[in-house]
């Protein structure tokens, strides 16, 4: 036993050294090929991602003039003044609230729709197309459409409410309602993407699992909670991470619908960055804000991986 193992090991080493000698030229060629194939992406990332990231760090420690030129080194003062400003904490709170309003509701709605349309019932193709439709919509078209629906006097939403005998709501101008309204519109806009991803995830699950559940007498509610949700949990987890990221990065709907108002009630993080950098031309503090946003997204994502991965059921 021992001898054969030793012999084998010697053979293996010999083979390896012979192989190395023969393939040194090949290795060089492979490396060149590898870098050549990566080059286009790598150059673009370097110029438009890594350099800007480093420059953001640099800018965040300076005061700048309106043309973006560095005027004075201030160290961490930009960050300190940020953390002292109420506006910063307000936009953080608004962003967190916005995330809490949109992510769980949006995922639940998409999951329900996917569960309802995933079987082979008649007419499902039409329903699938309808539920996917919002994926083709952009932030700006969705916002313009909803600004019409939310219009206080001529909007149809208030008209329907009045038919139900409910007093009209000042959707976008009432500080108590504005963020809710923006969230409703965002859930609608994002539902298409989540729906498509969940539907794809569900189609990877064999039909017979549901058939056998049905034969076992599991009702629709039980098979949803006990079978479907665990099976689709990897997809759900992926979507949750993506949705939190995109909630933290939303900007367009606030810019079009409310301009961050009324009274800062919809001023999310990215809107603050935009205001600071491109309306007030404070690129230094704008960069500081952007870096704080980056840190938050990173932290939240790591946290989700720490907490979520354990609960996800990979099959």
């Amino acid at each position: 036993m021992n001898t054969t193992e030793a012999e084998l090991a010697v053979k293996r080493v010999n083979a390896r050294t012979r192989g190395t000698r023969r393939s040194l030229a090949v290795i060089g060629k492979e490396t060149a090929a590898g870098y050549l194939f990566m080059a286009p992406s790598l150059v673009l990332f370097a110029v438009f991602l890594f350099y800007p990231l480093a420059k953001s760090v640099y800018l965040s420690m300076y005061l700048t003039d309106p043309r973006g030129r560095v005027a004075m080194f201030v160290g961490l003062d930009n960050f300190i003044s940020l953390f002292r400003a109420d506006a910063f904490w307000n936009s953080l709170l608004v962003t967190l609230k916005f995330t809490a309003f949109t992510v769980p509701t949006g995922l639940l709605a998409a999951l329900l729709l996917a569960a309802l349309t995933f079987g082979r019932l008649r007419g499902m193709r039409a329903f699938r197309f309808i539920f996917s439709l919002p994926v083709a919509l952009s932030v700006s078209t969705s916002s313009v459409i909803w600004s019409m629906l939310y219009h206080p006097t001529t909007g149809t939403l208030n008209y329907f409410l009045s038919k139900l005998g409910i007093a009209p709501v000042q959707w976008l101008t009432d500080p108590a309602w504005a963020l809710v309204s923006v969230s409703i519109m965002t859930i609608w806009m994002n539902s298409g993407f989540s729906y498509i991803v969940l539907l794809s995830g569900l189609q990877g699950i064999a039909d017979d699992i549901f058939d056998s559940a049905r034969i076992d007498g599991a009702g629709p509610f039980r098979s949803f909670v006990q079978i479907l949700v665990p099976l689709v949990s990897p997809t759900l987890f992926f979507l949750c991470v993506i949705s939190v990221m995109s909630a933290f990065q939303s900007f367009g709907q606030m810019n079009i619908l409310t301009k961050g108002g009324p009274a800062g009630s919809t001023e999310v993080f990215v809107y603050s960055i935009y205001k600071e950098a491109f309306i007030n031309y404070q690129f230094g503090t704008g960069s500081a804000l952007a870096l704080v946003l980056f840190a938050f997204i990173l932290l939240l994502t790591l946290l989700q991986f720490r907490l979520g991965e354990r609960k996800v059921h990979y099959h």
């Binding site: 290795i27 492979e30 490396t31 090929a33 590898g34 870098y35 194939f37 990566m38 992406s41 790598l42 990332f45 438009f48 991602l49 350099y51 800007p52 990231l53 420059k55 953001s56 800018l59 990221m245 933290f248 990065q249 900007f251 990215v270 960055i273 950098a277 690129f283 704008g286 960069s287 952007a290 870096l291 946003l293 980056f294 997204i297 990173l298 994502t301």
Partner: peptide
């Protein structure tokens, strides 16, 4: 292509997905 540093560069590429576009928008 099997070349040295492949795993490293792949990790770098994956990491690019973590950088929000807003962080780079000013520069």
């Amino acid at each position: 292509v099997s070349f040295r540093g492949r795993a490293f560069w792949f990790a770098v590429f994956i990491a690019t997905m973590m950088i929000p576009w807003e962080v780079t928008v000013i520069p």
